[in-house]
């Protein structure tokens, strides 16, 4: 469904991504992990058209999406959340999600239908009760849920989640993991997830790929990854426990 070949991105002389190849097949939850500065968020930004890669192609449903603007990529069916949450602060939760319905689709409905649909999504994400609250007044966990809800509102076929579990407490983490699974199982949306919390990413991912210094060093099922020599080496000195 989403496939990238030979993707390289340099900032000055520094390589953030070096000849990265990746493939996300329809219907899977794919984890993307790697130590700090491995290039995970850069990869997201390249996919979303925020940065133009120095080389490589990215194909979404067989079509090259490099050179498209972020908003066009969104309308093609790729949704995204931010590591540092970026809700529309002064808008209510409901309005935030309605914006996604109104702008993120190729054939957007009218305002009334958009609001109804937004409400369904809020219900799905467990935010229905807080729909009138201004986004800036939400807790971090709710802000992260809101970001996902807003991305879902654009009717994506694939969702890129950037650290949606990091910073949440254990209960919130469990809820979030459940929701992510439901997004795939019930809505049939493919997911590519960047996550630092290893327990979470091991639990939900069908496949995992590991980036280190901008290079892909491993790819496979979670249990394979945990045994991979290069992965353990890359993480050595970091505090993650497998």
């Amino acid at each position: 469904m989403l496939e990238g070949r030979n993707i390289s991105k340099y900032f000055g002389g520094l390589a953030a991504l070096k000849n990265v190849y990746f493939k996300v097949t329809k219907g899977v939850i794919k984890g993307l992990i790697g130590p700090n500065g491995a290039g995970k968020t850069t990869l997201f930004n390249v996919i979303m058209g925020v940065y133009k890669p120095d080389s490589g192609v990215i194909k979404f449903k067989g079509e090259n999406i490099i050179g498209l603007k972020t908003n066009q990529i969104c309308k093609r069916g790729i949704g995204r959340t931010f590591q540092i949450v970026k809700p529309f602060k002064d808008l209510s939760v409901w309005d935030n999600v309605t914006m996604g319905v109104l702008f993120g689709r190729r054939n957007p409905p009218g305002v009334k239908e958009a609001r109804d649909e937004a409400l369904m999504i809020l219900d799905f994400m467990g935010l229905k009760g807080k729909r009138e609250v201004l986004a800036k007044n939400l807790t971090l966990a709710d802000k992260k849920s809101l970001e996902i809800a807003r991305a879902l509102a654009t009717k994506p076929e694939i969702l890129l989640l950037d650290e949606v579990v990091a910073g949440l407490n254990p209960t919130e983490t469990i809820n979030m993991i459940k929701r992510i699974k439901r997004i795939r199982d019930e809505l049939g949306i493919t997911i590519l997830i960047v996550e630092h919390v290893m327990r979470a990413v091991m639990e939900i991912s069908d496949e995992i790929m590991v980036l280190h210094h901008g290079e892909k060093i491993a790819e496979g099922e979670p249990c394979e990854i945990t045994r991979d020599e290069r992965v353990i080496e890359a993480y050595l000195g970091e505090k993650y426990i497998f």
Binding site: V50, T70, K75, P87, F88, D90, F103, A151, A153, T154
Partner: peptide, 23 residues
């Protein structure tokens, strides 16, 4: 719709672009 797009942009331009607003 135009006004709603303005609102999104004034709140956060990156987020607006990500939800499909042609900023």
């Amino acid at each position: 719709r135009i006004g709603f797009a303005f609102k999104c942009i004034s709140q956060d331009e990156d987020a607006a672009e990500t939800v499909g607003v042609d900023t």
